[in-house]
Amino acid sequence: MRERIAMHYTGTIWRPPYEADSLIIEATAGCTHHRCKFCTLYEDLPFKFRPSPLEDIEADLLEAQTWYHDPLRKTEEHLFELPGARASRIFLAGANPFGLKAPHLRKIASLVRAYFPQCKSIGCFSRVTDVAAKTDEELAELAAAGFDGLTIGIETGDEEALAFMDKGYGAEDIAKQCARFDAAGISYAFFYLVGISGAGRGLAGARATADVCNRTNPWLIGANMLTIYRSSALYREIEAGRWHEATEVEKYEEVKELVAQLDIPVEFAMLGASNPVMLHGRLPEQREGLLATLDAVISDIGEERLRRYRVNLRHL
């Protein structure tokens, strides 16, 4: 019997809630941008960004084969098949593996096919700038290689907030690059960061975000509440009086405005740890139900209890 080996995972592994059943293989560690003022996810790493060696990825794929039962091989010790046991979806871990060069991503896809020929799609996180750095031909090639269902942390469509938080792109860039994804046949989901516009600006930020989203085609918009940690650059901006945090009720009013203004058919979800109340529905069909739930959170839970959750959230 082959000796089991440890997977090449570095630090905390982050993935979207909807990738829970995916096989997770680390492709990068850290973030190519690493300048967003609110982010503390990769602060413990001793480097900014590091691609995983292809030999490590191959070793992890080989190890992962031992986790999955081949349904064509019926033995006494494998009389049943676990959910997702054929690894039809592989998620490449890292802040933005799509920032890797297209030829390198195609090599990773070739390894995936070699070890998991039944894999139907490969997902990962992507920055807007990662899409911009690739040609239309490269995007089409990556789509053909299996890349699909990528997650983009757009955060907001609020130009002022994007600039202040040093995201490295503007609202129009979101719409432009997503149109290129659409043309290439690569589907995508958005992460929206509730509260990023700051105190008193949440409703305007929600409207600006809805305006951008209504010009794109995400299959899902996942909202996450901004949680500010002392080690972040944003905390230093607050200390200097250059930025003020929205209240928890303001954040929920912001979510209500976004849900009300979205005109595209899309799933809307609040499923991450930063959200004190989980929420998931389909727009436009379940809009009124979502709005009613948000109203109930504001009126029945209220600022004090919502804030208590926020300050006691030790880690995302």
Score class of each variant (00 low, 15 high):
E160V: 07
W14V: 05
A64F: 05
P103E: 04
R310E: 06
A223F: 02
P276S: 01
H34W: 04
A59M: 13
W219H: 10
E43V: 07
R230H: 06
P71K: 13
K101A: 15
G195T: 00
I154H: 04
F191M: 03
K120G: 12
A102G: 05
E141A: 15
A133Y: 05
L271Q: 08
D211F: 07
K37Q: 09
L139R: 09
G289K: 14
A208C: 10
T227F: 03
R2G: 02
E43T: 13
A199L: 11
R201D: 08
T10G: 09
E55N: 05
R207F: 02
A208T: 01
T216G: 04
R307D: 08
E304H: 05
E58S: 06
E237W: 11
H8W: 06
R307M: 10
R127N: 15
D44H: 03
A85M: 13
T293Q: 15
V128S: 10
T151W: 14
C31L: 02
F125R: 01
G30V: 05
G222R: 09
L105F: 00
A133G: 08
L100G: 06
L262S: 12
F181S: 07
D130Y: 11
F190E: 03
F191C: 03
R2H: 03
L290P: 08
Y309Q: 00
R230N: 07
A210F: 03
E288D: 15
S121R: 14
E159P: 08
P53V: 09
Y188R: 10
E137M: 01
I186F: 08
R310D: 01
P53T: 10
L139S: 15
A199T: 13
V128H: 11
E160G: 11
Q65Y: 13
K167I: 10
T10S: 09
L111T: 03
T75S: 15
D56S: 08
K176E: 12
S121Y: 04
A246G: 05
T10D: 07
Y169V: 01
E77G: 06
I186M: 10
R236A: 13
P83Y: 14
V212M: 03
D166F: 02
H315W: 10
T156I: 12
G205R: 02
D300P: 03
E81R: 03
L92T: 01
H244G: 00
A189L: 12
R89N: 02
G195Q: 05
C213I: 04
R35L: 11
V212P: 00
M225E: 00
T135Q: 06
R314N: 04
E19F: 00
P117V: 05
P83C: 11
R282M: 12
A163W: 13
E63L: 12
E155A: 15
G302I: 02
R230C: 02
E141L: 15
A95Y: 02
A206I: 08
E76R: 14
